[in-house]
């Protein structure tokens, strides 16, 4: 179809130690769609996500961004990455830079903007994540939720085709999770294309257009968010009930 931003075909990853983490995963993400990947720990969710922006080199399979194969050794990996945002579980803000500088860095050194233009965009995205009041703070002095919102703003500033979230709330205290999820939900409403790995089942059901359930390196079940209510496979059922017990 025309509006498929991301196409993943037969993705396989075998780590150097011999761990076969991903065993043939294929899925597509359409423009404006948000896809949630759920699954038990060690099922290969992060691996898939990292393969997409080539933080990990896939062992096999193809990844296409806007019809273009991006996992070939001759492709310009930096160019590709600047079109794919990534939000990490542990925020990974640049701790020696103030909030504003964290966001302008990519704009200035990747996009080659001057300082003023970059700051204009930075202020815009900081407003979207509601962090305008702390632009001069260092990351070390922010709360976890604030850090993650700045990290989201950092990805947003680059105007990515798609943003990848790797458990954006797992490192946060329960009371801080809300604000981050709120921000992501806002992005979904604005029509941002997103792939979200999460353990927040309810959030996945609310926000995601589609849910992918991964187990032992393969996609065990895939479908609209309704599959959370009516899981077809035993494995997803077990997984969901295990999550409910927590």
């Amino acid at each position: 179809m025309e509006d498929e931003v991301l196409i993943i075909e037969n993705l396989e990853k075998i780590y150097a130690g011999g761990v076969h983490a991903v065993r043939g995963v294929s899925f597509k993400v359409r423009k404006g769609e948000s896809v949630a990947i759920i699954g038990s720990s060690g099922s290969g969710k992060s691996t898939v996500l990292r393969c997409i922006n080539r933080l990990i080199e896939p062992t096999m399979g193809t990844i296409k961004l806007n019809e273009e194969v991006i996992n070939n050794p001759l492709a310009d990996v930096n160019e590709i990455r600047s079109k794919i945002g990534m939000v990490f579980q542990s925020f990974e803000l640049f701790s020696h830079l103030k909030v504003l500088e964290n966001i302008t860095l990519g704009l200035r050194y990747v996009r080659g903007m001057n300082k003023e233009d970059a700051e204009k965009i930075a202020l815009e995205v900081l407003e979207r994540v509601d962090m305008l009041d702390r632009i001069d703070a260092y990351p070390g002095n922010l709360s976890g939720g604030q850090k993650q919102r700045v990290a989201i703003a950092r990805s947003l500033a680059m105007h990515p085709e798609v943003i990848l979230f790797d458990e954006p709330t797992s490192a946060l205290d329960p009371e801080l999770i809300g604000s981050v999820l709120q921000t992501i939900r806002g992005l979904a409403d604005e029509g941002m294309t997103m792939v979200i790995v999460t353990h927040e089942i309810n959030f996945a059901r609310d926000v995601a257009d589609r849910i992918i359930y991964m187990d032992k390196g393969i996609i065990a079940e895939e479908g609209p968010s309704e599959i959370i209510e009516n899981p077809k496979t035993e494995r997803l059922k077990e997984f969901l009930s295990a999550m409910d017990d927590e």
């Binding site: 933080l55 930096n78 990455r81 990534m86 803000l93 640049f94 860095l105 990519g106 990747v110 990805s155």
Partner: peptide, 21 residues
């Protein structure tokens, strides 16, 4: 190591990430 990944994921080169981050 996440700092390197974060730098690279916004599109900085390896050397750029080294130098700036």
């Amino acid at each position: 190591s996440g700092q390197m990944e974060a730098g690279r994921s916004i599109g900085l080169t390896y050397m750029g990430t080294m130098r700036l981050i």
